[in-house]
Design a protein around this nucleic acid. Structure first.
Lengths: 168, 168
DNA sequence: GTTAATTTTCAATATGTTTTGAAAGTTCAG
DNA sequence: CTGAACTTTCAAAACATATTGAAAATTAAC
């Protein structure tokens, strides 16, 4: 397979994988394109390479920036803005975990905490089953939360890092 | 909050969370309903409780069954089929991890392995950057793969289980 | 300030996904 | 068998989400 082919393949597949994970196809594709572009590129280049409209590129790049996966680069003496993706894939993963945790796991745990305090007799079969279910989901969520925190912080701490190595 | 209210809240929020994770809203809601139902219930009950059509219930329950999250229960002497969700939430999580790993992570690693073998001079800047990027994504994917395997097998192995306890 | 280059917005449109419901299929009691 | 109870299918409709493109806003060079 040639380089140009491989790049296209990567970009298109990355978009497809993104979709399965609840990530906008175009956003994932733009990210992929930037990941395999050694140098920063402009909106027009993204438009051309992926055959998508200016507005679409603009919105999705802004989203990527809000996830801290892409940064805006100002080249002195150039009018246009350039964009570049974080290339350290570990940092990328960490960043995505952080964001999704904040946007999804945290609100979920908040909800479960509320639901645990349902009124009524805990002896009642239905109530008991509900409270126990909510509590166990919450417990699982908290474990995931802590596990992800450890993963995020692994770089900063030799001890947890050495434990994580066992998973490699 | 009353029990009935809390159940509705849980079902509707669970559907919303599912959506963010690339899971059909209705499928997540049916799963939530079954999770908080102490006894197995019929398609008609699901239809009524969630106000959705027969066809929709049928398809989504079949999906849930294909994920091994729900089972079909035949009550002797009863014509209708009943459905019940796995209530052990750790098993549920394990099952979901297994399935998503198989359906998504495995194909991704396969793709990356192919892309690593791109033709061309590794000294070329573009080629080098591409191959390195693919390799590092693959490495990350393989680490995630192993980490998930360990998590899935934690129950079977006291040693890894005791390590995972540190994350709790 | 004026102007031209560039970015941003957003209503309209297109695309993708989910849901419906009626018809076809299956099952089983009698 | 037959027919009623129940399940499954799938084309059409509804709904949700993503994309376009042209107009508005911003920016910076002069």
């Amino acid at each position: 397979m040639k380089l140009s082919e491989a790049k296209l393949q990567f970009i298109s597949s990355w978009g497809a994988f993104g979709t399965q994970w609840g990530i906008n196809r175009t956003m994932a594709q733009i990210h992929a394109l930037l990941l395999v572009s050694p140098d920063p590129i402009t909106q027009d280049e993204v438009m051309e390479q992926l055959s998508i409209s200016r507005g679409n590129v603009n919105m999705n790049i802004r989203d990527l920036i809000s996830w801290s996966l892409v940064e805006r680069i100002i080249v002195p003496g150039e009018r246009r803005e350039y964009f570049s993706a974080e290339k350290d894939i570990w940092k990328v993963a960490t960043q995505i975990i952080k964001e999704r945790k904040k946007r999804e796991l945290d609100p979920m745990l908040k909800l479960l905490t509320q639901l645990e305090n349902v009124e009524g007799d805990k002896k009642d079969r239905e109530t008991k089953q509900f409270v126990e279910m909510i509590a166990s989901i919450k417990k699982l969520g908290m474990s995931a939360d802590k596990m992800l925190d450890v993963t995020i912080k692994a770089e900063e701490n030799w001890f947890t890092a050495s434990i994580l190595k066992m998973f490699k």
